[in-house]
């Protein structure tokens, strides 16, 4: 078990590195927005209107009465 005397300090060193990296990330503003990134994964642009499958876009150009 003597290896623990080496492994635990090594673990703590890595831990220190991780904390330092996180502090740097927070300081550079990477965690300022906690809401949007969660959505960005599921939100992707739809297909562009040009390659819409049925070409239905643009058929609705029946305009509303002018004001």
């Amino acid at each position: 078990m003597d290896i623990l005397y080496f492994l635990i300090p090594l673990g703590l060193l890595l831990l220190g590195l991780a904390v330092w990296a996180f502090f740097w990330a927070v300081g550079s503003g990477q965690f300022d927005d906690l809401d949007t990134p969660a959505m960005r994964v599921v939100m992707d642009d739809d297909s562009h209107p040009a390659d819409a499958p049925d070409g239905s876009h643009g058929s609705d150009e029946r305009q509303a009465p002018d004001r």
Partner: peptide, 11 residues
């Protein structure tokens, strides 16, 4: 819609 972002309405 024309910008291809109708997903906005569902999310």
């Amino acid at each position: 819609r024309d910008a291809g972002m109708t997903r906005y309405y569902t999310l």
